[in-house]
Design a binder for these strands. Structure first.
Lengths: 194, 194
DNA sequence: TTATGTATACCGACTAGTGAATATACACAA
DNA sequence: TTGTGTATATTCACTAGTCGGTATACATAA
């Protein structure tokens, strides 16, 4: 049984992460990942039992980094909950301008695997999105919001709407619009707005 | 030059539509489409110069049907703008329960083609989404809304957020939540709510 | 000896796209 | 009416390459 902490395994996931995110899981071959990682395909298959497993490992490795990036933006923003939520969107608009930005890897993978709803990678994505929603609800509950869980879900919908529509229009104006909508929803549920 | 109105061409697009939507563009081979259409691959390549062209034709054929389905839901709903908008979401939740439902073909195609932003199919998708946003803004402007275009964009973001997140969680509750959020945004911009 | 890790070489199935031939239909001239 | 030319539409057989995955062998270390 291969060592799940091995540096070789990590090298493979790093290579897979860069290629899968840049090109999409269907357009990247196992050969290409092995070459990028500087080893042979047979070695890759020693550490992962299938490409599907590797896809799930790729997303699993993005769970915490992605979550903590957004948490960092939220924490750093000044002001009330509406301003902190809006900061998520303005930072998103900033990074989305980078030419290498290709949307949300979790959503893109789920879109590619739409015909395989039980795929392990989709489950990893589902867990990640739930983690994020739960984290956001927790943050909002400290800001005098009436129904923090319902609000968190609405904001998540706007964030994922941004990710998707940006891949079609490539126009960051949509992210700004989503940020304003999110702020409106926050204020609609703020206690001091009664 | 092939006839762009030919019934054979239509048969090919019909077959492509069913397969591409069910499996995703990357998982469907040109051979499979030809077989489904009941002709040979060489004939398919007489009518379309490449698979990429066929993908664009598939989405182009979905523009009006998709738009008119949602317009039908909107028109049939009773009540003010908030109720009509909410009707879009409740109908969406209904059809999303069907086992063959696989999200929005435009968004899924854009996700698969994220590494090729100038792909003709992405342009067709962009035009479709703009058409929808424009139609919705027009409808809203007849309902005493302050900034119908800005509101239409916010609702579009919620709709596309539903499409995406549904592929991850497969839980229609998210669509209901989006509907309530949309209704909140509508009321926030209604003149009679000042 | 046994477990872990890596390499070369290969498999059968599938991929998008093409070359060459042919079937069909209609126009026009003898 | 018959023969010929031409554009459209279709088929069979094929190319050159890629796909995920594996059989076999070898090295190193406990």
């Amino acid at each position: 049984m291969p060592d799940t902490q091995s540096p070789t395994r990590k090298r493979i996931i790093d290579a897979a992460t860069r290629l899968f995110y840049a090109e999409g899981i269907g357009r990247v071959s196992v050969d290409a990942i092995a070459e990028k990682a500087g080893l042979t395909k047979r070695t890759l298959y020693y550490h992962f039992k299938s490409k599907d497993d590797l896809i799930a490992a790729y997303l699993d490795g993005r769970d915490q980094p992605n979550l903590q990036q957004i948490a960092g933006w939220f924490d750093a923003a000044q002001g009330g909950a509406d301003r902190k939520v809006e900061a998520i969107f303005s930072n998103l608009a900033r990074v989305a301008r980078h030419p290498k930005w290709k949307g949300c890897g979790f959503l893109r993978t789920a879109a590619e695997l739409a015909s395989m709803p039980g795929h392990p990678a989709v489950k990893v994505g589902s867990r990640h999105k739930s983690n994020f929603e739960t984290w956001l609800a927790g943050e909002l509950s400290g800001h005098d919001i009436k129904e923090p869980q319902a609000l968190a879900r609405e904001i998540v919908l706007l964030i994922d709407g941004c990710f998707s529509i940006m891949l079609i229009h490539r126009n960051p104006d949509y992210i700004e619009a989503a940020g304003r909508a999110a702020a409106t929803l926050v204020r609609a549920r703020s206690r001091n707005n009664d």
